[in-house]
Design a binder for these strands. Structure first.
Lengths: 219, 219
DNA sequence: AACCGAATTATACGAACGTTCAATCAAATT
DNA sequence: AATTTGATTGAACGTTCGTATAATTCGGTT
């Protein structure tokens, strides 16, 4: 159709992505989504079956891109490392870097997705409900990769480190605007370049921390 | 009224806290809240004015407790430090420790609050809207305290470190259950004792990490 | 030229929503 | 004993919600 540059199905996902991120899943009506997308109300049920189906389609199309890039970078690392340990900073970058680049240069949709997924990731409703099956296999691969990057660390330390990394990453790409309020606008939560430059060494140092402390106490 | 052990106003806040955390603000109706609280529908508007007023009351009563404890611990640190620098681990513990202890031993309400605030903190709607004014003054004090604990680090590094700490903390107390799924139940996101033991050295090491290297954005 | 199936339109349905308000209750105060 | 006041009840308001369905459009195949 000539209603917009893209087809109806894509426009619906784009608008829903933004509005879900702004107001939450139940905070937006299908009427508002279809109106802002220039489509008829019934098109959501036609293309996605149900409102929840629309949400899942919105999330799935981004996770697939993200997972593919993460896995590809990790496989490159594994190929380059041979039998040796993986470089820790590179594993962190392989996980967060794709998200960083897509959020920076992937268009407005990725910004909306970042805010949406930061809310959804913190609610059990979405996690338990199949949507995370698109994410979990990749996450498991990265936990194993972090263990390979930190061969002297216990599994426990690596698992919790990955947990802290998840929280940091989700909050980072949510771009909540809180840091602006706290610093009077001097630092901006949308300044992903600055944040990414700091977050990789920050998380890598955290991963290495627990054992360093144990070693100090033992020696 | 012998409907419950506590008065209606408190019961409404307790039930709303849990349901808002489970389903989001717009995912729960006042009818469901009042029914589960054993109260009449009109009581929400009577006690809190509006549905949103109920949400704000729910969040405010917890933030006030949290802020008071955080500030008290920080003032103790400042008194003990005199003119010297603050011990970094202690500042981290002064910020996260109260939340950890309340979430562990403060009753089920604090668990619900943790999940609720992790969603709300990632949505601009709540942050821009006055509710964060209860949190921001304390956050500003802690950013200053972190600078005092890291006199050789740039303000920029400290600010971003605090940002990463916020994300880690919010995700930690959301207890999303994701780490169970990723580890087959071997590690549990409700094991706050283990998480807290790891998170303080993790974040402290991140704060101390050397200045961010200038990283080129590659694709 | 007739046809087909996917996409779109227009409309309707029943249910649930937040909010309001007059009436009633129950103590504490006068 | 009468009165006041905050808390609670029960019912209703108009609106909006997600979903379903029959009718219509239209380019590509027959």
């Amino acid at each position: 159709m000539a209603r917009g540059r893209t087809d109806t199905k894509t426009r619906l996902m784009d608008v829903a992505e933004k509005l879900f991120a702004d107001h939450g899943f139940d905070g937006v009506s299908l009427r508002r989504i279809t109106t802002e997308a220039g489509a008829q109300l019934a098109m959501v049920n036609y293309h996605f079956g149900t409102k929840r189906g629309l949400l899942e389609a919105v999330i799935a199309r981004r996770i697939e891109v993200l997972s593919e890039q993460r896995v590809r970078l990790l496989e490159d690392l594994e190929a380059a490392a041979g039998d040796g340990p993986l470089p820790l900073e590179d594993v962190v970058a392989a996980f967060i870097g794709p998200y960083y680049r897509l959020s920076s240069n992937g268009g407005r949709g990725w910004k909306n997705y970042g805010r949406l997924v930061a809310q959804g990731a913190n609610s059990r409703a979405l996690i338990q409900h199949g949507l995370s099956n698109l994410f979990d296999p990749v996450a498991k691969r990265f936990i194993a990769a972090f263990q390979r990057a930190l061969p002297e660390r216990s599994e426990e330390q690596v698992v919790w480190g990955f947990h802290f990394l998840m929280g940091t990453m989700l909050y980072m790409f949510a771009e909540t605007g809180r840091i602006e309020k706290l610093t009077g606008g001097k630092y901006r939560s949308g300044d992903l370049d600055a944040m990414y430059a700091h977050v990789v060494p920050f998380l890598a140092a955290g991963f290495r921390a627990c054992e360093a402390q144990v070693q100090r106490q033992a020696s």
